[in-house]
């Protein structure tokens, strides 16, 4: 990158603009925290302020101890769905990607084109028939429709991992083949350890997608005990004591708990997040 000479005047202007803009983007976070710390009295008056006036930390305890809210259950469900989704995506997508990257077979190119083209199909087209299929299987109101499809690979993940494997030199596989290792052995003992960075990327993206996913759980889950947090918040918002003001402070606590894992993930995994962003975009835009 070029070392751009920036004059002092320009610097001042830029800092002012960026700080102003940064504050504008940061204010909603502060507001979220502020509402989540409001007392029941403030909530009843709906007199929330940007800068927290109350520091009612009990809200963060109440959401777990109050059996009517039971946020712990929502969180656990979110963790269950995300964990299985990640496991499914990691193992299936990497195995499939290995096949596409390394093995030679008739029809491979065509099939890979099909993989790529499925990325362009909007989910809404398959949503209704999938619902009917899962209903036929008796999976409605279970987490299975949200988990099981992940075990059949995701097109974008297959693509990402395939690109990554293609960059690894062939020599290791060839050596292993000569030593008598089968194709599955090469995948599990040679390739899998080498592709850890992209596996981390896939895991992060799968988590991000499933953690905040609203529509899938909304379609398939009816019982409150089975709902993940993203859907549970909406229930919390709409059904808390008929006639009374919804507990907005508690809704906002739940929103905080939905947001915090995403931010932690960003701080610990940003290297992997940007990797996929850039590999993915570069190759699919052309």
């Amino acid at each position: 990158m070029r070392a751009d000479k920036v004059t002092l005047k320009e610097k001042t202007v830029l800092y002012i603009i960026m700080t102003g803009f940064g504050l504008l983007l940061f204010a909603p976070f502060v507001y979220m925290i502020s509402i989540s710390l409001a007392t029941p009295a403030t909530n009843a008056k709906m007199a929330f302020s940007l800068i927290p006036r109350d520091f009612h930390w009990q809200n963060y305890v109440k959401v777990f101890t109050d059996s009517d809210i039971n946020l712990g259950r929502f969180l656990l469900n979110s963790v269950i769905i995300s964990t299985f989704a990640i496991l499914g995506q990691i193992f299936s997508s990497s195995l499939i990607a290995y096949g596409f990257a390394r093995l030679r077979a008739r029809g491979k190119k065509v099939l890979f084109m099909v993989v790529l083209s499925t990325m362009m199909i909007p989910a809404q087209v398959t949503m209704i028939p999938q619902f009917i299929i899962f209903r036929y299987l008796g999976w409605i109101n279970t987490m299975l429709p949200l988990i099981v499809p992940n075990f059949f690979g995701g097109a974008f993940n297959i693509f990402l991992i395939r690109q990554f494997i293609s960059r690894i030199p062939n020599t290791l596989d060839e050596a292993a083949k000569i030593d008598g290792l089968g194709y599955f052995g090469i995948y599990s003992r040679i390739i899998l350890p080498l592709i850890k960075p992209i596996i981390a990327t896939v895991a992060i993206f799968t988590f991000t997608w499933n953690w905040g996913w609203f529509m899938g759980p909304l379609i398939y889950l009816n019982d409150i005990e089975k709902m993940p947090l993203a859907l549970g918040i909406n229930i919390l918002n709409s059904t808390s004591n008929v006639g009374a003001t919804p507990d907005w402070n508690l809704v906002m606590v739940a929103s905080m708990l939905l947001t915090i894992p995403m931010i932690l993930l960003f701080f610990f995994g940003q290297k992997y997040m940007f990797e996929a962003n850039i590999t993915g975009a570069n190759s699919s835009a052309k």
């Binding site: 979220m32 918040i233 929103s255």
Partner: peptide, 8 residues
């Protein structure tokens, strides 16, 4: 997540 920002 969009659910959280919607509430906010």
């Amino acid at each position: 997540p969009v659910v959280a920002s919607s509430m906010l």
